[in-house]
Nucleic acid binder design. Structure first.
Lengths: 206, 206
DNA sequence: GACATTTTGTGAAAATAAACACTGCGCGCG
DNA sequence: CGCGCGCAGTGTTTATTTTCACAAAATGTC
């Protein structure tokens, strides 16, 4: 199954569908039409159907989609069937908050360790995972086959830290630093830039 | 100047350019070529040039762009010339972390108040702004002409809270709840869904 | 002051993404 | 048991976005 043919945007929307399905599941809904699911995901029904055909046919004409079955298929495609270990680098305000954010675990990600330039800094609460000094990154990563990292360090050191992560074998980075990381082709980066999101909003309400 | 003709994606990239320019400014760089600026923003040079032509001509052929002038132009277009007041709703882990995040103020946004269902909850530190009960939202908003809100409440109440915000006059919402908000056409929503970003990354490293 | 060099600006082409329009399957009702 | 309705699947069209290719402009050099 060559997944290279699925457009990036489609993959992103699959996650939205998956989320919406999870809510339907929680409400014991058994089947859902493309129209209803599309609305919950904020897209057009035709787009939803097109997205799904990239990897198979799952609906029943005249009836809709079986919530459980489709949800399972999406899990399969998205590769979230098993728990994915992640590390977090930069345990400042934002990093600490993310460590306590329950959403990651709920979606199948386990933050197994955090790293910080000042690992001994007094933190207001227990963060649930050990906070280790940066120097330990290489050792932990090589011993555990971690492929993903959440980067919440200040912008001025982000590139440098990212370089270290990549050298240690990290293949995917969720970057919160307000800077575009320069990385090799085999490394994937998703940027979350809160100030830019606000700025973007402000443009559209002028 | 009809700004409706500028594509949404272009507007988003303008913010990236603006960021990159800010760094150049800090380094006392006076001019920059489209190639260099594009690299810093993670786009192709032709795209950068095309983006800029949507609202004017700012470069000097053979030389490049004047960092200060272009930066000022972008500020103008993006509407971030003056401080924009914002409220934050949901002062849990994530919300509290965002209140202490210095990036907003740096980009011209001032969080003037926070709201929470449990305004008296003991919080580990002073958050820099008052945390008020939800019921106060209407009063504060009507007295201060706030148009933007950051929404960091749990998913199961997000839609309801958003409805209240919209009724109180909010026109733009930065939504961190893992749900697609249903809003009227005149309201803009940007979603930041951390779990989805991770999920998306994990797909591309399979 | 002409010429080589650099780099922007932009119409045209290509690629990508979204929407439409229609086919036909399957369920349920009569 | 067959007929009609509802809704998924999909080839085609349209719209949007990105990239290309090249002309035009400014700079600096000799």
């Amino acid at each position: 199954m060559s997944k290279l043919v699925i457009p990036r945007k489609t993959v992103y929307r699959l996650s939205l569908y998956y989320r919406a399905l999870a809510r339907l599941k929680a409400n014991k809904v058994e089947t859902v039409s493309s129209a209803a699911l599309a609305k919950a995901a904020g897209v057009k029904p035709t787009q939803l159907r097109k997205d799904l055909t990239y990897f198979g046919q799952f609906g029943t004409r005249g009836l809709g989609y079986n919530v459980l079955a489709l949800s399972a298929q999406l899990t399969e495609v998205l590769g979230t069937t098993h728990l994915q270990p992640v590390i977090l680098v930069g345990a400042g305000h934002l990093g600490s908050a993310l460590l306590r954010y329950p959403g990651f675990a709920k979606e199948g990600f386990e933050v197994i360790a955090a790293f910080d330039a000042d690992a001994t800094r007094k933190r207001s609460r227990d963060l649930g995972v050990p906070v280790l000094p940066m120097e330990e990154i290489g050792r932990i990563l090589s011993s555990q086959r971690i492929k993903m990292a959440i980067l919440t360090v200040p912008g001025n050191v982000a590139q440098e830290v990212a370089n270290g992560l990549i050298e240690a074998g990290v293949l995917a980075i969720l970057n919160f630093a307000p800077i575009i990381l320069q990385v090799p082709d085999n490394v994937v980066v998703n940027n979350v830039d809160l100030a830019i999101e606000l700025e973007n909003l402000s443009y559209f309400i002028q």
